[in-house]
Design a protein around this nucleic acid. Structure first.
Length: 830
DNA sequence: CCGCTACGGGG
DNA sequence: GGGTACGTAGCGG
């Protein structure tokens, strides 16, 4: 522990209060009392934990009209079951807003957070009670809301220093805790990464690397190597122990991983258990804890924040990132420009089993940690801004879905600012019911006019759905109100529903505020130096605000939502279709053809004076749009290929490729980066798109022909034809035998051991039977099935881009009388 | 068409 | 633990 003068701290804390930066929050039970723990840094970057014993669990109960002596009855409620006895501690009468109206309701206190869900059932079943509220909000969240404390912001704390077993500089027993402004504090960062090898069904640790934002970089290894940054220890166990020592020594606020929740921490925990040791990264000596969060287990470290960047990327950034695969290599390459070191998985295994080039392996391992720190620098401003905006801890923010962001924000604003008793979460049955309902009509899509187009202007509505929610006052409580019944205003297009025009709804109010805040931020950003800290922080804030505003529409139609109403979500898309129709109509009146439109964007063909005509059109459209609705002109593309991609419902989905004046190529919706396609197919498709966009269709066809010839000749390197998949379970537990399982099973018969978690690479070989019958692991493949690779890989990938230009399979095959390679299907019969 | 299964990232 | 929460492509029936 760092040497620290507790006496001076004590004086300061009692007299003036301490200013503390809040990193994380939880609670424990001590002497049958809930104790909130705030994990903080003070202004001198010392680690401080605040104990707050003053916060009591409670929920609300709403009495029926005319019910008598309700308060007394509720006060005497008590539950006794196998979990023990729980009694209502006390009851207060307070005023809260429910469905836009102020009401007197009961605030029912309990002794323990755990008692709340039990007591609320007992209270809810009383004949005098109409309903119960706010029993379903985690205790620590309720604390943050009621105290108006925001994570990653400052709090003023007074109290007494106490002794504790926690591994921190000081612990305070708080008398008061309140939010306060403070300077920017940058949490310290510590990334780590493991390299492992699968042995006897377990992932064993080969080495671990660490990298801090202060520039400390090391690799912990237990085999000899000459890498300059290696720390040598004598066993796998020693790697774990040394890693823990480094974490405690560097004492970081944030521990960073890429997929640590489901990989690195999982491996660490399993190996530590094997050796009877503990992954002691935290401040309580308890090791890593797993918190179930839906599908994943979130690895949490008491007193530090484990940020799993993969979680944040795959949940929140996914729509912002153009790569379809959210691997560290792709994501880091796109966001920071640095990619992973080139090392195939096979090389890695070979390096380890043969103990050769271990220096390179160590260097590769260290690079992963360095890249993770770099990626964190790019992403943390967004995580921080979202935490501050929604009031969620960074631990929760980086693992949140869009729905959870909205819920956290709305809960905060409603409960702690607007005195609203928030609606309950739906029960499982209600969620299921909502999900089983028929899908409602979604956005308007103009089917792409397939083909290669020139001089394309792109327009889109600025924040279409948020603007609609705000402009038309859309939320459950304003739908079909009694006060606006006789009016014709604010009707949902194509329906008889309407939204109130007299009383502002809670959700439209929040959304409108978010939109106008963002406009202010954007304005400020225009006059601020782009390299400045202010600009970067504004950019992160406007991203947070935009993300949140855009999520409200989804939340209105999300089955798990507290503010769900199908009619509201339907109304939003109905207004959306109405507006985009209107713009297309205006374009067509002016002779501008719409070649593709989706939800809020449209591509118009403008043959001559593209820019000038586009700007004039924009001005005309905007003069007709109501309120805050606005169309933007995004720019012009020289050429674009548009393709139809049939999906089950709703027709065409985004699939197009564009090239602008500078030669920048944008590709959307093609499968160029999916790993279940062979490299040859992906490369072919990319090359074809590039050639077509450069107006070289004939060259593209010729190019594919050369590839086809190469495939037919049998001379393609098998490495180009491998298809990757992961074997997820024991091979005998698969009910459905796909090609990869089949290949793995065959390999097993030849003595290869394949455990769950192994990524295999297979090739479809020549012979008879189904594709599964002929799939072989790369290392056993002697040849390849020309027919399969043409039919299922090269031709579909190439035609995806070329068929819209009238190119057929026969064109690519060079002639129409292919007989030697089997059945080509009916579609291509001459 | 529906219903079930497998998958994501990591090594 | 103020309970336990994904979304979807792809295939077989």
């Amino acid at each position: 522990m760092i040497c620290f003068n507790k006496t001076s701290f004590k004086n300061s804390c009692q007299n003036n209060g301490m200013r503390l930066f809040v990193l994380d929050v939880d609670y424990v039970i001590e002497d049958s009392t809930p104790v909130i723990r705030l994990f903080c840094r003070n202004e001198g970057a010392k680690s401080v934990v605040v104990y707050d014993r003053t916060f009591e669990p409670y929920f609300y109960a709403i009495a029926k009209k005319g019910a008598k002596s309700v308060k007394k009855k509720v006060s005497s409620v008590s539950v006794s079951d196998e979990k023990g006895i729980a009694s209502v501690k006390r009851v207060e009468t307070i005023e809260k807003i429910i469905c836009l109206k102020e009401k007197k309701i009961l605030k029912v206190f309990a002794k323990l957070p755990f008692d709340v869900p039990r007591l609320k059932d007992a209270v809810a079943t009383l004949p005098e009670i109409e309903g119960v509220r706010e029993f379903d909000i985690p205790f620590f969240k309720k604390y943050l809301m009621d105290k108006k404390i925001f994570p990653l912001s400052w709090a003023d704390v007074t109290g007494n220093v106490i002794e504790s077993s926690l591994n921190v500089d000081v612990v305070i027993d708080a008398e008061s805790v309140s939010a306060v402004d403070g300077r920017e504090y940058r949490p310290s960062l510590f990334a780590f990464d493991l390299e492992t090898i699968l042995e006897d069904g377990a992932n064993k640790i080969i080495m671990a690397s660490v990298c801090t934002d202060a520039g400390y970089k090391k690799v912990i290894v237990y085999e000899k190597d000459n890498f300059s940054e290696s720390i040598h220890v004598d066993s796998e166990k020693a790697v774990i122990d040394k890693l823990c020592v480094l974490v405690r020594e560097k004492d970081p606020d944030f521990v960073l991983t890429y997929n640590g929740d489901s990989f690195d921490f999982d491996v660490l925990k399993n190996r530590a258990e094997e050796y009877g040791t503990v992954v002691d990264f935290g401040r309580d000596g308890q090791g890593v804890k797993y918190q179930r969060k839906g599908r994943i287990n979130a690895a949490s470290i008491r007193g530090r924040v484990h940020i799993d960047l993969f979680q944040f990327v795959s949940r929140i950034m996914r729509t912002t990132i153009s790569s379809e695969v959210m691997s560290l290599d792709n994501v880091s390459g796109e966001l920071t420009g640095s990619r992973k070191k080139d090392m195939t998985w096979e090389t890695m295994i070979e390096s380890w089993t043969k103990k050769k080039d271990l220096d390179k392996l160590a260097e590769y391992c260290l690079n992963d940690s360095e890249i993770t720190v770099g990626l964190a620098r790019a992403l943390l401003p967004n995580i921080v801004a979202l935490s501050r905006l929604t009031g969620s801890t960074p631990f929760d923010t980086c693992r949140a879905t869009y729905g959870q962001l909205v819920e956290a924000y709305a809960l905060r604003r409603a409960a702690s600012e607007m005195n609203i008793a928030v609606p309950n979460k739906p029960t499982q049955d209600v969620v299921r019911e909502r999900m089983e309902m028929d899908k409602f009509q979604g956005a308007f899509v103009v089917e792409p006019k397939p083909g290669l187009h020139k001089n394309i202007a792109l327009f889109d509505f600025r924040s279409l759905y948020p603007s609609i929610i705000a402009s038309h006052n859309i939320e459950p409580d304003t739908l079909n109100c009694t006060c606006c019944k006789s009016k014709k205003e604010n009707r949902v297009p194509g329906t008889s529903s309407y939204f109130c025009t007299k009383q502002r709804g809670f959700i439209p109010r929040l959304v409108e505020e978010l939109i106008s805040e963002r406009i202010e931020m954007k304005k400020r950003m225009k006059v601020v130096d782009k390299e400045s800290e202010e600009y970067k922080s504004l950019n992160a804030k406007q991203f947070a605000v935009k993300t949140l505003a855009n999520s409200f529409y989804g939340y209105l139609g999300f089955a798990g939502s507290r503010w769900y109403l199908r009619e509201c979500a339907e109304a939003v898309t109905a207004f959306g279709r109405h507006y985009i129709h209107k713009v297309i109509e205006m374009a067509e009146k002016r002779g501008l053809k719409c070649i593709y439109g989706d939800t809020d964007s449209l591509f118009l063909l403008i043959e001559k004076d593209t820019e000038a005509v586009a700007r004039k059109f924009l001005k005309e459209v905007n003069s007709t749009l109501p309120g805050i609705m606005e169309l933007d002109y995004e720019g012009t593309y020289l050429r674009g290929i548009f393709v139809q991609k049939k999906t089950g419902e709703g027709g065409a989905k985004k699939r197009y490729a564009l090239i602008d004046k500078e030669g920048n190529v944008t590709i959307r919706g093609f499968e160029k980066v999916r790993r279940d396609w062979s490299k040859l197919a992906k490369d072919t498709q990319e090359k074809v798109l590039e050639l077509v966009l450069s107006d070289k269709k004939d060259d593209a066809v010729e190019y594919v022909k050369t590839i086809v010839e190469k495939v037919k000749s049998g001379k393609v390197d098998l490495k180009e034809l491998g298809i990757y998949t992961t074997v997820k379970r024991d091979l005998n537990k698969y009910a459905q035998i796909g090609p990869h399982v089949s290949a793995a099973k065959r390999a097993e018969k030849r003595g290869v051991i394949i455990h769950p978690g192994t990524t295999i690479q297979y090739v479809v070989t020549r012979g008879s039977g189904s594709i599964s019958d002929r799939a072989e692991l790369m290392k056993f493949a002697k040849n390849y099935d020309k027919n399969y690779y043409l039919e299922n890989q090269i031709l579909p990938a190439a035609l995806r881009a070329l068929s819209v230009l009238g190119v057929t399979k026969d064109d690519l095959l060079g002639n129409a009388k292919q007989t030697g390679l089997g059945n080509w299907g009916n579609a291509t019969k001459p």
